[in-house]
């Protein structure tokens, strides 16, 4: 029982990182932009949050956790919106290839983050020395009334924020006028344009806001998952790609991403709770989330239901003159 509980807790923490990533990417993709820069944006959000908190904690004698939290949050959002903006400018205004731009953003983000992470480790006194314990403690603080409830006993506020954001996104896309307009932009930009919707504005906004949400995943990873430290081990990148897989798994529906993210978490950590696995057989188990995604893709393709398909103009630039 204790083992199941601990697996669920690990799964939820793991799932929250990719839930942020997936919800942000769903918003982006709904506008027809396939942003493969998810891992890069997570990296940038994470390192910016860590850097902000680190500078704050090293510059004052007694850092206030709440102030650190706000500074880290602000820095993470700023960095990821900026990344989303770069992507938008390249793909929407300059009409660069979306796949190439996204992949480049991932490489860029991981490079910048690992460079700065290494630099900060050095400033803090050596490899693995960086720690923003005050800020991290604020992120990991549990709600007092939930601390006795088994699975929920150790979850920080961002775990709940991810779920709330997913529900808000779902409501926005299905029930609001702006959400409807956004879906039209991603499905058929020419039609949306003819109906008087500003395709460029919708694409920019949803890509930048989507990047902000994705960046929160990186912040959560740094502050909660690895408890306010930094490691150049490619951990964020791995989770970033899983977030992209989760978008497909959830068939572009944020509310399905919620349980999907926890399922991915369970599948990923399963090896840890199965006895007698060697290092190499562990790796086989870590493939489970990807295998499940492939199975979902196969099933969805075979059923060919329109609602389960990606936005029709996903990955394609839009020229008004190109009708």
């Amino acid at each position: 029982m204790a083992q199941v509980l601990s697996l669920l807790q690990a799964a939820i923490v793991f799932g929250t990182v990719i839930l942020f990533g997936a919800v942000g990417e769903i918003l982006t993709e709904k506008s027809g932009n396939l942003n493969l820069g998810v891992p890069g944006i997570m990296y940038l959000g994470g390192i910016a949050g860590l850097g902000g908190a680190f500078l704050y904690e090293t510059s004052v004698a007694a850092p206030v956790p709440l102030v650190g939290l706000i500074i880290a949050l602000f820095c993470a959002l700023l960095a990821s919106v900026l990344a989303g903006f770069i992507y938008s400018f390249l793909t929407i205004t300059l009409r660069a290839n979306q796949n190439v731009t996204g992949l480049t953003l991932t490489i860029f983000g991981s490079g910048v983050a690992n460079f700065l992470g290494g630099a900060m480790n050095k400033m803090a006194g050596g490899v693995g020395q960086i720690s923003v314990s005050a800020t991290s403690s604020a992120y990991r603080a549990t709600f007092p009334f939930l601390s006795e409830v088994g699975v929920l006993s150790s979850l920080g506020f961002m775990t709940y924020l991810a779920i709330v954001l997913a529900f808000i996104m779902s409501w926005f896309l299905r029930k609001t006028r702006k959400g409807l307009n956004l879906r039209a932009v991603g499905e058929n930009p020419a039609t949306a344009d003819a109906a008087g919707i500003s395709v460029t504005k919708y694409k920019y906004l949803s890509t930048c806001v989507g990047a902000a949400v994705t960046g929160l995943g990186g912040l959560y990873y740094v502050m909660d998952y690895i408890k306010g430290t930094w490691a150049n081990d490619g951990g964020i990148e791995k989770l970033g790609w899983l977030a992209v897989a989760l978008v497909i798994f959830a068939r572009w529906k944020p509310r399905h991403a919620i349980w999907g993210s926890y399922l991915f978490g369970v599948l990923f950590w399963l090896y840890f709770y199965i006895g007698g696995l060697t290092r190499s057989s562990q790796e086989l188990f870590k493939m489970l989330p990807y295998i499940v995604t492939i199975l979902v893709l196969i099933v969805v393709s075979m059923r060919r239901k329109h609602e389960n398909q990606p936005p029709a103009s996903l990955g394609q630039p839009y020229f008004r003159e190109d009708r």
Binding site: L180, R183, A184, E187, N188, T191, A192, A195, E307
Partner: peptide, 14 residues
């Protein structure tokens, strides 16, 4: 837009 309903298409952009 194919995946939207008749009503959703009609009010699009209004």
């Amino acid at each position: 837009v194919d995946v939207l309903t008749a009503a959703e298409n009609i009010i699009l952009g209004m």
